[in-house]
Each structure stands twice: as C-alpha cells, then as structure tokens.
C-alpha cells in the first residue's frame, strides 16, 4: 500500500513541476483571468447597469452582480481549470504505449496529474480572491463560508475532471478534441450560471436543470460563497450521481478505445 501511495505522490510531484516549469506561463495563469474579468465582465455589466432604467435586475443590483461574478470567476479557477489536453495528446500521438508498459495505469497517471493541478489552482484562486478583496470588489467572507465553498467547489472539480477525461478519451476517434472542449465549455458557461445568474433564465429551464450537474458548477457554489442558503445535500448528491455516471462511461470508453488502439496499432 505504501509503495502504491508513493507512486501517486511522486506522480503528483512530477506533474507539479511540469505545470510550474514555465514561470511566465504560471504568472499569466494567475493574473490573466482576473484581468479578463475586469476588462470584460466589469465593464460590460457597468454599462448594462448605467443604461438600465431600473438599478436592480432580477434582484441583483450592480454590486450584487459584481459579487456574483467575482465568485464565479474564483469557482471556475478552482473547479474548472483542468483541461484534458495532455490526455488526448497521449492518445492521439500514441504515447499510451508507454503507459501500457509502466506498472502504473493511464488513469492513475492522469488522475494524479489532476490532483496536482488542483493544488496549484487552490493557490491561483486564493491569490485571485485576495486581489478581489484588495481592489474592493468583495469583502472577505467568514472562515466557515470559505471552507464550505472551497470543499464544494473542489468536489465539483472532480465532476469537471471526469467530464474532461471523457472529452479527452474521444481522441481515440477524433483527430482534434479541442472543438468538443470549446463546445462543452460554452454550454457549461451558459447553463451553470457563469455568464448570467440563473435568476435571469426562465423558471422552467432552471427547474429542468435542477438534477443536471450544471447549476452546481457555478451558480450553486457562488451562492454558498455569497452566504446564501443552499441545499448542500442536494448539491453533493447530484454531483456524486454525475461523477459516478461519467466515471462509468469513461471506463467503457477506455475499454472500447483500447480495443481500437490495440487493433489499429498506432
């Protein structure tokens, strides 16, 4: 057991050094999203509110709206940063062969990579949080809110990972998987409440989404961070269900993909 855990630990360390190998890249990763947020979301919403005759849109005044969006930004950094680029490249370039030879499985390797990425993202999102507090966009929430929010978001990150893993595995069949990923991220952005809070959507749609994973990817954790009441049990249950679904689908796809791979001999 100990030797097995050491394999994981060393893989996490290696992935960590890979992620931080390019310092400028790392710096941009920290600062970039915050700047994008400031220049696009902040300016967009301030013009919307300036042009609007009512200072409150569906219960959100300008300051609420900014709070909401700062939190969705932090949530997306913490829970939706991982991209299965390496994974699909491994498949496309036939690097799977190496993993079939090592006494450490492909999924173990990439899951360890994900864990390491998440640790990095905890730093990145914490820095963003501090920047947001420093510039006066939000106030620092209580410790219990921070803990509840971070735990839920990290759990959501696991769902995000299983979904990314799914798109990565499609590289067995598709030449390029980035179109799939962009498509997925657009759908997620809209349905999760990353672009607009879900109150702005028709009620039937919000109702329909309740048991889908989407609201729990931005809207729901944002509400936690904003100190509003949410049904945590429902949130965790829905996400657990979807994690299990995707993990099973991934298992099947991997099996089918491997048959294809070993039959085609890339």
């Amino acid at each position: 057991m100990q030797t097995y855990l050491l394999k994981w630990w060393q893989t996490i360390r290696i992935s960590w050094s890979k992620y931080t190998a390019y310092r400028l890249n790392f710096f941009l990763q920290v600062v970039g999203p915050f700047l994008v947020f400031f220049f696009i979301k902040y300016n967009l919403w301030s013009s919307i509110y300036e042009g609007s005759s009512t200072p409150v849109i569906k219960g959100y005044n300008f300051s609420d709206m900014m709070h909401y969006h700062i939190w969705t930004l932090i949530i997306s950094l913490l829970g939706q940063g991982y991209a299965a680029m390496n994974l699909s490249e491994d498949i496309r370039l036939g690097r799977i062969s190496s993993y079939l030879i090592y006494p450490f499985e492909f999924w173990e390797f990439h899951t360890a990579g994900f864990v390491s990425f998440q640790i990095l993202q905890v730093f990145v999102s914490s820095i963003t949080l501090c920047l947001a507090v420093f510039f006066g966009f939000i106030e620092f929430p209580s410790l219990s809110i921070i803990l509840t929010g971070f735990s839920f978001t990290l759990f959501m990150g696991m769902f995000w990972f299983t979904m990314q893993y799914f798109t990565g595995l499609l590289a067995f069949w598709l030449e390029e998987t980035w179109i799939m990923r962009v498509l997925l991220s657009i759908i997620v952005s809209f349905l999760s409440g990353y672009i607009f809070p879900l109150e702005l959507y028709p009620e039937w749609l919000v109702g329909a989404l309740k048991y889908s994973p989407f609201p729990y990817m931005s809207y729901f954790p944002a509400k936690i961070f904003m100190g509003q009441e949410v049904n945590l049990t429902l949130g965790y249950s829905v996400l657990t269900f979807w994690i299990a679904v995707f993990a099973y689908i991934n298992h099947l796809i991997w099996k089918k993909g491997m048959r294809l791979y070993t039959a085609a001999g890339m």
Binding site: L6, Q10, I14, K18, Y22, I101, Y102, P103
Partner: peptide
C-alpha cells in the same frame, strides 16, 4: 520487460531526466 523506442520519447519533455527517473523508481518500486 523494457521497451526502448528510438522514434518515440518516453521521457517527459518539460522536466529534467532525473525527475523522470525518480518517478520510474517509484513505479518499479
């Protein structure tokens, strides 16, 4: 067993070889 492929790199590109070796040390116990 071991497989060495002259046309395909098994080492990780962005890190020193030593880091890869340390990882393999753990993989092979």
């Amino acid at each position: 067993i071991a497989l060495v492929m002259g046309q395909k790199s098994q080492l990780w590109w962005d890190i020193p070889a030593m880091d890869s070796f340390l990882l393999l040390q753990k993989f092979y116990e």
